[in-house]
Structures are given as C-alpha cells and as structure tokens.
C-alpha cells in the first residue's frame, strides 16, 4: 500500500513537471498560430525553422555563450577551488562567502548590478557583456562542485607521487586531476544547463540586436510566440532526452566511471 502511494505521488509530480513539455510538443505540430485551437497536424514549423535566420542566429548565440562561458568558468573555478583548498581558513571563508553571493542573491539584482557596471564604464552592451555575465554566475557552480571533491582527497597520494619522482605538474595531472574530474565535469554540465536556461541576467546585460533564445521568446510574448520556437525547443528537448537515456542506460562499464557525486545534480 505504502509503495503504491509512493509511486502514485511520484507520478503526480511527474505529470505536474512534464505537462508543459507535452503541451509545447503538441503546439509544435499545430497547424494554426493560435495556442487555443488545434488546427490539424503539420511539420511546417520544423521545415520553416531552418530558413529562419534570426532564430538560427539566436540559437547559435545561446549555444556559443553557453559553451564559452562554461569552459571559461570551469577553468577559472577549478583553479580557484584548488587554490582555496590551500588557503588559511579565514581567507578561504571570505572567498567562499563571495562565491555564494551570485548563488544566493536574486537573479534580478545580479542582472541589474552587472548592467550598472557596464553603464558606469560605458561598455557597449552586446554579445561580450552577456558572456561576461554568464561566466560570472557560472563560476560558483564549478567551485561548489569541485571543492567538496578536493576536501575528501587523500593528500598522501600526491605526496607519494612526488616522492616517487613525479614533478608537481605531473603529480597533479596523474593523481589529483583524475580524482576531481567528476566534480569538474558535473560543474561544467551544470554551468551549461544554467546558461542555456537563463533569461533574467541575459535580459539585463544584452544589447540591442543581440538575442539568445530566451530573450527572443520574451520579445515575442506580447505579440504571440512564433510556433517555430516550439519546434526548436521540442528538438532540443528530444536531443537531450536521447542523450540522457544513452548515458543512463549504457551497461555497467560506463556506470563505474560515472561519479557518485553526480547524484546531487
């Protein structure tokens, strides 16, 4: 009985979370622009998608900003986490506190604070300002996912590598790096996901003429969403779904390599 209630509850939550996805997928095949009526089945939004240069441009912006900001944030964040692991408690705590600011502060405040920074220094709003903002809110995800891994690292194996004649550089890449790799990887994936899904901070740091998918959708809210957007997000959703299923259901060999720490994500 208890088991049934648990299953039932999971199903309810699942429906709650996935009802909008199903709705959007249905919209993407709807032959009318209206969201209220079903006008028959069509593939025309999918076909039209690849001829719509402004949507493709927004997609490219979204993906390149996500990729670049995640890569840079992973690099800066990992190095910072390594350094913080070797700091005195006070300076470590201060830096950790600063790291928590973008995590805990309201996105709207982070957004406007960066907007004011660019206004104050008369920096032109555009692609670069979005990228800088995304790196800024991504770095904490990396630090918070690498730092716990470093904490549980056995310092003796690094020393052992040094004693056995490895130089610090080699010792790091052969011994420490493989151990923290899962943390780095999950930090990177978190960054990428957050960057793709971000609207609020992009909204305040973008310039005229530069759009990501989120800001493009927001601009369309008042005059009606272009159904090609539904088609595009359905494609993205299905791609990620397939990737997730592949990663999660490949047999044991893969699973052993999969970090335990990732369950938190």
């Amino acid at each position: 009985m208890m088991k049934f209630i648990k299953k039932f509850y999971l199903v309810i939550i699942f429906i709650f979370l996935y009802a909008p996805m199903v709705t959007l997928i249905v919209f993407s095949f709807n032959n009318t622009k209206s969201r209220a009526k079903w006008g028959g089945f069509t593939f025309k939004w999918y076909a039209g998608l690849f001829n719509d240069s402004s949507i493709i441009q927004a997609l490219i912006n979204t993906l390149t900003i996500a990729l670049l900001s995640s890569l840079i944030a992973t690099l800066i964040g990992t190095i910072a986490a390594l350094a913080m692991n070797n700091m005195k408690k006070l300076s470590k705590n201060i830096l950790m506190g600063v790291t928590n600011i973008p995590m805990l502060n309201a996105e709207i405040v982070t957004g406007i604070s960066l907007m004011l920074l660019f206004i104050f220094f008369k920096y032109r709003f555009g692609y670069v300002t979005i990228l800088l903002a995304h790196i800024t809110f991504n770095i904490p995800y990396v630090i918070l996912s690498v730092a716990p891994r470093l904490k549980t690292l056995n310092p003796n194996i690094y020393e052992a590598a040094l004693d056995l004649g490895a130089n610090p550089f080699k010792a790091f890449f052969k011994v420490v790096f493989p151990d923290i790799m899962p943390g780095i990887l999950s930090g990177f994936l978190m960054c990428f996901t957050m960057s793709i899904d971000d609207f609020i901070i992009t909204h305040f740091t973008k310039g005229a003429g530069v759009d990501t998918l989120s800001t493009k959708i927001y601009a369309q809210v008042k005059k009606g969403i272009d159904p090609k957007m539904y088609a595009l997000s359905t494609l993205i959703f299905v791609t990620v779904l397939v990737l997730l299923i592949l990663v999660n259901y490949t047999p044991n060999k893969e699973k052993q390599r999969k970090p335990k720490g990732e369950k938190a994500k």
């Binding site: 979370l17 009802a19 996805m21 919209f27 899904d197 994500k265």
Partner: peptide, 28 residues
Amino acid sequence: NKDKYMVFIFILPMWMNFLLRTIAWQTL
C-alpha cells in the same frame, strides 16, 4: 535507479526554455 529519477525529474525540464514552460501553463 534513484539517481536516474533525479536527473529525469529535475534536470531535463531545464532544457525546455523556462519562459516557454511558463507560457505552456498559461495555455493550460
């Protein structure tokens, strides 16, 4: 299996744009 549930329940929806998800609720 639970790790899988977690990923599917919480990470996957983030890949469908959050504005679009909210707009979908508007219609529903």
